[in-house]
Write a protein that binds this DNA or RNA. Structure first.
Length: 598
RNA sequence: GGUCCCAUAGCUCAGCUGGAUAGAGCAUCUCCCUUCUAAGGAGAGGGUCUCAGGUUCGAAUCCUGAUGGGAUCACCA
């Protein structure tokens, strides 16, 4: 049983027996003892001083005496001011390690069972008019990692992608291609499909701006110039044609979308993310209208003179929100209401519907949840917006229309080149085949990028410094991979020498570093649970880093294969193996692979 | 202007539901490869946790206000 739970129960009993006080166990906190002090677990007794009517020191001593007498896992205790430090017996920790080893790769995970609840995670959700960039990378990595973590917490997870494949922005790319493209294709240009489309999106913007300037120089206001520019008018006409199902337009749209999807799939596959369910906005954009009209009938929403339909959110401290245009067409919010309803209809009583979307849409999701609950859907509160901050560059902001973005494909390629250079300089992979080397370089590059982004708390705006991200020392993905490779090397040698890890260790004590490591291992499940509850993959990343640091210290101080006492040798080997298992497991939750050699 | 988010070492970031002397990495300066992978380890310097109040035995953490930065308040998505 978990030591914290044992101690919590024991403390409740102790307070009852010694002071005749009844304390709710949920109010009790057991914390780690700080490194400067002796002990493993600490109970802060200040809250019980009033009950005891004694000094903090006396209270701590009395509780300590009671606990030591009644809890076999407690070996000794010491008191510093109001802090009761408990030393847990090696026997407990060693047994704990044996148990975790026996669980193998499943250690720390809660299995998905028939009565597991369902959670949908929508992420990525790209536009089909340009390639993926750095911001999308953060989105994809967060979404995928979150799905993995929730799954490790025992939820049935559906990874969903809603592709924004319609609207004026798509028409811009289409129009530019039609006018200036000379029937260029991914094959003829050698460009990835999404990059080809992105090229024409940028081109549209460039030409459009030129037209605006011309109009302004002819005396137009900027507002008017933007709207009156011939290119803009043509794009709007194209959208109308598309909506009316014009065969030629739809056919071009289909062709160009196929190019983009092919490009996206390459990027997704290289990033290692995947989806269980695809939604296309061209198929969902008409949803929600009925629901809105229903709400209008019930008097929850209201209609303006021009025929548009609105929600009054002033009671909630917000503005009025448009839901149907005067011509009866839907807006973004309308569709989102429609798709949410559809999803709960299809998947029943989900525990959560999570949207991984940037923080610029905080307001949108706040409004979405309010309107849904106004419309009477009890599950409205189950919508969770996993809001993440922008990724900034040292040079300034990214603007896709101006082409000042860090392109996802370029970035991954650059990372790989760096990984290749560094690895070749170190020269440790000589024994591998060319193919194996390539795979390792890619693995290292991906780890560097993913870890750099995922170690930061999602909500925060983060700084992406390309130079630093490529640094493979310190708190980085490659550092963690390196430790895994080191352990694998030791395990290989142990195997060659015929040293095996027994189910039961024959040691009764251990060194300081071994104790710290064993405690870190014991914490893994708690971290998975925390990361799931807080929807924060960063907890997994930071825990793994701490674990790896603890291992490196142990590795430096304690010899494994050269240890003469075979009981100690086996114990150390077991410890190392479990650390390697957790590294691989934790990194997998973040979508990162770890090599056996590097 | 309203609303929401952020502010911790020179830089990039941790710090769980309030607990002991606030931690890492990078950068700077030392030291450690005849020992299992030195992409490693040990050490030094570097902090009024933006500011001001408040709650508490105790605040980087909770509350209020201010300042600075970001987002948003579209008949775009």
């Amino acid at each position: 049983m978990n030591i914290d739970i044992i101690l919590t129960h024991a403390l409740v009993t102790a307070l009852h027996e010694v002071y005749e006080a009844d304390i709710d166990s949920s109010s009790i906190q057991i914390q780690e003892t700080r490194k400067e002090f002796e002990g493993d677990k600490t109970i802060v007794v200040f809250p019980y001083v009033k009950i005891a009517r004694k000094s903090p020191e006396q209270t701590a001593t009395e509780i300590g005496n009671y606990l030591q007498e009644h809890v076999s896992e407690i070996e000794s205790f010491n008191v510093v001011k109001g802090f009761l430090n408990l030393s847990i017996s090696p026997a407990y920790w060693i047994q704990n390690l044996q148990q975790s080893l026996s669980k193998g790769e499943q250690y720390g995970f809660t299995a998905v069972s028939s009565d597991s609840q369902t959670i949908m995670v929508e992420y990525s959700s790209p536009n089909t008019n340009k390639p993926l960039h750095l911001g999308h990378i953060r989105n994809n990595l967060l979404g995928y990692a979150l799905a993995q973590i929730l799954s490790a917490n025992g939820y049935r997870v559906i990874k969903a992608n809603l592709i924004n494949d319609r609207g004026i922005h798509i028409c811009k790319s289409m129009l530019a291609w039609k006018l200036f493209g000379n029937n260029e294709t991914p094959e003829s240009s050698g460009l990835k499909g999404d990059h080809l489309i992105g090229k024409y999106y940028v081109l549209f913007d460039k030409k459009h701006k030129k037209q605006i300037q011309e109009l302004i120089s002819q005396g137009s206001s900027e507002e008017h110039a933007k709207n009156d520019a011939p290119l803009m008018q043509a794009a709007r006409e194209m959208l109308v044609k598309w909506e009316s199902g014009d065969a030629e337009t739809v056919s071009l749209w289909k062709t160009m979308n196929e190019w983009v999807y092919k490009g996206f799939n390459e990027t997704y596959s290289r990033m290692g993310v995947s989806f269980d369910k695809m939604y296309y906005e061209s198929q969902t954009y008409l949803l929600g209208k009925k629901i809105i009209l229903d709400g209008l009938d019930k008097g929850i929403l209201y209609k303006k003179e021009d025929g548009s339909v609105w929600a009054d959110l002033t009671k909630e401290g917000l503005d009025h929100k448009l839901l149907l245009r005067p011509d009866g067409t839907s807006v973004y919010m309308t569709q989102d209401i429609g798709t949410a309803v559809e999803r709960f209809r299809e998947f029943g009583n989900m525990k959560e519907l999570i949207y991984v979307v940037g923080n610029e849409q905080n307001y949108h999701f706040q409004v979405l949840s309010i309107i849904l609950s106004k419309l009477g859907y009890e599950w409205a509160e189950k919508i969770y917006h996993m809001s993440y901050g922008m990724v900034e560059l040292p040079a300034g902001k990214m603007k896709s229309r101006e082409g000042t973005v860090v392109d996802a494909d370029d970035l991954m390629e650059e990372m790989k080149e760096t990984a290749t250079t560094i690895s070749n300089d170190l020269g440790k992979l000589e024994s591998l085949t060319v193919n194996e080397k390539e795979q390792t370089f890619e693995m290292i590059a991906q780890a560097a990028l993913k870890y750099f982004i995922l170690k930061v708390e999602p909500r925060k705006t983060m700084m992406f410094n390309p130079k630093e991200s490529i640094d493979f020392n310190g708190n980085t993905g490659p550092f963690i991979q390196y430790t895994h490779a080191r352990i694998c090397s030791v395990l290989r040698k142990a195997d060659e020498q015929g040293i095996t890890i027994p189910a039961t260790f024959l040691v009764s004590t251990y060194s300081e570093k071994e104790r710290e490591l064993i405690k870190m291992i014991a914490k893994y499940q708690e971290i998975i649970s925390l990361a799931g509850k807080e929807h924060a993959p960063s907890h997994i990343a930071n825990y793994t880093y701490d674990l790896v640091k603890a291992f490196n210290q142990f590795y430096h101080e304690c010899s494994i294969l050269n240890e003469e006492d075979s009981a100690i040798q086996q114990f150390r080997l077991g410890l190392s193996k479990q650390v390697a298992t957790i590294i691989a497991s934790a990194m997998k939750l973040l979508g990162i692979n770890v090599p056996e050699r590097m």
